[in-house]
Write a protein that binds this DNA or RNA. Structure first.
Lengths: 351, 351
DNA sequence: GTTAGCACTCTCATCTCATAAGTGCTAACG
DNA sequence: CGTTAGCACTTATGAGATGAGAGTGCTAAC
């Protein structure tokens, strides 16, 4: 069934108004402020009809109308008025990423911070899955105290390191050699492939089998997601939104965001097809609290994933602002990472 | 003025009772449950006197008594009944640290988690200051894309790394050489000394001065505390304590713990003399919220600092439990880190 | 020094009541 | 047939009012 233009208009007004004020919207206020050519009674009829269609709900008879999750979805897809960020905000993004250290952990932190600051919501970020990353460099460095440090760098500039126990009698030279052999064996391989070549590699190491075992275990452990890869910024921002004057909502919210596992699940199921993903209430994901929404974007540049980022906040979220911020941050990232890769490429040629 | 034994006893009862129940303590309940040989009127007189001495306060005339910060302090120093953890808790600590990866970041995370789990309060941890750490290993690894990875390991097993831009024309061999030179120059030096030798070192590098500049900048940056070194665990635990049924308290608390800077300041001013440090309300530290207490312990083993850890929670905190947990965690850490160093020592000799 | 007794204070939950906001329905209008 | 004015109905909200309960301070007697 096609919705009449007037219904669409009214629905848009209700959602806009509710997002801005957090107050249920009445027929009177619509007729007075936005649709001056009809009476409140007419609006009332339309509202009743929209309620029947499932777009609006009432807390109680005399409480005005509030959008349903379905209304928010429709709003995002068809009603929301597009428009870009202010100069100030664009500038802020620009400056935030200028001259940033370029490993993934720092990137995740600054992206998350920027998103939280600009949207005024709590932001969540998670770096790219190490899983399918190719090992670009791997080295074993002597620590001189019975341990060596295993360091790897992946294509997407993810860093991982572990201490590896060194057997008595293994000299620094031995270690250097082992390091070179390991580099030959693993560079260019994806972390997920390590387990496939395990047997083969171990066979090559007669003498220092034990070391190799530890190295392989470490590499395998890098494919597992880590709590510390999930970054949360601006938890306190929820207090800027009136739904969190209520202690139970706060409790609920804080419990969810305290569990990095849960957070990773909520923002983590990457759907590369969709750039921006909106989950409204628990309809779309049972791990999202009923009264919350989660908007995420998965970024990539030059074919490399840069992770998934988003905001979590009240279902009455400023979707337009949030989506616009996510889009612009994405563009900015593409810009700087793209440029950097060009520069790198040049270097490569010259060498 | 010396306090009478009965006053001490009554004060102890009030603090114990209030810590357990969160309900202001009345003269009647004391006389009935704990001091059956005197009447409530007698207790009443003593309570009035303790109030005059500054140990107790009342919210309102008919509200029973509540300990003042001064009372908590006195309680901790003189009244609190000592006693160790349950077998179960001791076991938990034991198991938690067994077979843990041994770099500092992971250690900080698990220590903080253990403390939060056992105490049921929000826990904060911060690793040792990198500032005075000696560089044990330093290496520059080629990444083959116009960047190199600078990695350092310090005496206390702190890891730091940065990407360093490599000028066109610098080959992998050049890099290897540079890495060796850098190792010779910096190994054994404290990070805080780097700035002192800056000029001297730069003089040695004619050709790759720029690289060296970046290396030194990176090293200098490692002395600065980083947000990510402050670890927070169990923020949601505050909801287990009734003072945080009140939204304003939650807001206050969450705002403080959201700022890593603030947290670092609160738990950070290390006083090596004192093993366990208790800050009660804002009397002892203006950054601590009025209704909160912070108990911290600074750990070290084998002469190396292991960081500062603690809990932050309501001023009505189970100080005995918290202090006992912190003490036992300290002992456990000494145990495992001590052992590990012995083992390392042996290796050293054998090599 | 201790205690019983009692007046006093303050909180808290409950109830009532009036007000305000908003709706749904009906009947009239163009 | 869509639109509108009018009105009865529902519900939240905030302001008293009230009574019970808890705890204290004080006084006088032991």
């Amino acid at each position: 069934m096609k919705m009449s233009d007037r219904k669409r208009k009214i629905l848009q007004i209700v959602v806009d108004e509710y997002i801005n004020t957090a107050v249920p919207v009445s027929s009177k206020s619509i007729a007075e402020k936005h649709l001056t050519d009809v009476s409140s009674a007419t609006v009332r009829n339309e509202l009743a009809s929209l309620e029947e269609l499932g777009y609006l709900t009432q807390f109680h008879t005399s409480g005005g109308r509030v959008p349903s999750p379905q209304a928010y979805r429709f709003y995002i897809e068809e009603l929301m008025e597009k428009g870009n960020l202010s100069e100030k905000d664009l500038d802020y993004i620009e400056k935030a990423f200028a001259g940033k250290s370029n490993d993934v952990e720092h990137l995740v932190r600054s992206v998350s911070k920027v998103i939280s600051e600009l949207t005024d919501y709590t932001s969540v970020g998670i770096g790219p899955h190490a899983d399918e990353e190719k090992i670009r460099n791997i080295a074993l460095l002597s620590c001189g105290d019975g341990n060596a440090l295993l360091v790897i760098v992946t294509g997407a500039r993810i860093l991982r390191d572990s201490f590896i126990g060194i057997p008595e009698g293994m000299t620094d030279e031995d270690l250097d050699n082992a390091s070179r052999v390991i580099a030959k064996l693993f560079e260019g391989k994806a972390l997920s492939e390590v387990k496939d070549v395990e047997e083969e590699v171990l066979a090559e190491f007669g003498q220092y089998r034990q070391v190799m075992h530890e190295v392989i275990d470490a590499l395998k452990s890098y494919t597992r997601p880590r709590d510390e890869d999930v970054v949360l910024t601006g938890a306190e921002k929820i207090f800027n939104h009136p739904e969190y004057d209520d202690i139970d909502n706060v409790k609920n919210f804080l419990t969810v965001i305290s569990s990095k596992d849960k957070l990773a699940e909520i923002i983590g199921d990457e759907n590369d097809e969709i750039q921006i993903n909106v989950k409204i209430g628990s309809c779309d994901d049972k791990d999202v609290p009923e009264d919350c929404s989660v908007v995420t974007a998965t970024y990539s540049a030059g074919g490399k994933s840069l992770g998934t980022y988003g905001v979590i906040g009240p279902i009455r979220m400023d979707y337009h602002k949030v989506i616009t911020v996510l889009e612009n941050v994405g563009k900015a990232l593409e810009g700087i990472v793209g440029n950097k890769d060009n520069k790198d490429g040049k270097h490569g040629k010259d060498e």
